[in-house]
């Protein structure tokens, strides 16, 4: 019991730390891809420190303050319901659908705060964000549904457990492919970063957020990176479980492997991001509802066929 509570307290701290670290490393990687030197790997920590130590924070009204607070609340809550490498955390109290809806709290709260700023750019950014969400949810939901139908469970812990023999990535490659395409938009990386397109809508929803607000959003984003990648890993990569023996050593190894997988997934998204231009929002929508959806439907049909007959 005490060990579990300690894990629950340790995880958010660890994840936000690792998230910031990973984002710093990714900035370095992006820089190397673009033939630059790039910032030091701990740059993200400096940024957050600076943002929290700003001598002045500018807000608009109390609804505006909700944005970053809800962003962190949503991400922290979601994180605790996702199995992380051998740690099940609270995943027995909420299944995949609960997680998918908890994941929305962050974005919706953020949208609320952004809208309250009264900046038209924020409104446009939120519109793009929601449109993009509708776009990528279509293929994502179908591909996740394929997994749920194949294993006939909605419990994340169960899905992880059932992949101990073989990853869903190998059994349902099409669904995994589509889910990774959707992951690109979930991370908010190019070519699907329309909501925060700096040159078009001046970073969209976060246009009015500076200082501690932006610092909180960066922390929320770093947790969100783990949440989104972790969800993908739990669904398609067997929860990152490498060793199935009991024992604390193996559990730590499993957890480290899970972290490594998060890093790998994020790197993949960042590498695509580094060399891509940006879609228009309606192009992004049509893209997601066309090819990924078709592939996802084929994947779903396959999963259904295998599981029913």
């Amino acid at each position: 019991m005490i060990a579990e509570i300690l894990v629950l307290i340790f995880m958010p701290v660890f994840v936000s730390f690792m998230g910031l670290l990973f984002m710093g490393i990714q900035r370095k990687i992006t820089a190397r891809v673009q033939n630059r030197i790039g910032p030091p790997f701990y740059q993200q920590f400096i940024d957050v420190m600076k943002l929290f130590s700003k001598r002045e924070n500018i807000g608009h009204n109390w609804v505006f303050d909700i944005g970053p607070i809800f962003a962190i609340v949503g991400m922290l809550t979601t994180m605790l319901f996702i199995p992380m490498g051998g740690f099940r955390l609270l995943s027995m109290d909420g299944d995949l659908i609960v997680v998918m809806y908890l994941l929305v709290i962050s974005g919706l709260g953020m949208a609320l705060g952004a809208g309250a700023s009264g900046n038209p750019n924020a409104g446009i950014g939120v519109m793009r964000g929601l449109t993009l969400m509708m776009a990528y949810e279509m293929p994502f939901v179908i591909s996740v549904l394929a997994v749920m139908v194949y294993y006939h469970t909605t419990s994340l812990a169960e899905i992880v457990g059932m992949q101990s023999g073989m990853w869903a990535l190998i059994i349902l490659p099409l669904s995994a492919l589509v889910a990774d395409m959707a992951l690109q938009a979930q991370f908010g990386k190019k070519p699907f970063d329309q909501p925060i397109a700096p040159a078009e809508v001046a970073t969209g929803p976060i246009v009015e957020y500076g200082g501690k607000y932006l610092g909180m959003l960066m922390v929320a984003h770093s947790i969100g990176m783990f949440v989104e990648a972790g969800l993908f890993i739990d669904i398609f990569l067997g929860g990152g479980l490498l060793f199935h023996q009991p024992g604390i050593i193996w559990q730590v190894f499993n957890f480290l492997f899970w972290v490594l997988l998060v890093f790998a997934l994020y790197t993949l998204a960042v590498l695509v991001n580094a060399i891509m231009p940006r879609y228009r929002i309606d192009q992004a929508f049509v893209f997601y509802w066309k090819w990924p959806t078709i592939i996802a439907i084929i994947g779903l049909a396959y999963a259904l066929g295998v599981s029913v007959w």
Partner: peptide, 22 residues
């Protein structure tokens, strides 16, 4: 900003809104 002089080395970054800028 680009690869010739790369100001991101110093942690500097272009920002589009004054609220986020120093």
């Amino acid at each position: 900003m680009t690869s010739r002089y790369d100001m991101e080395r110093f942690g500097m970054h272009p920002m589009v809104t004054p609220r986020q800028s120093d």
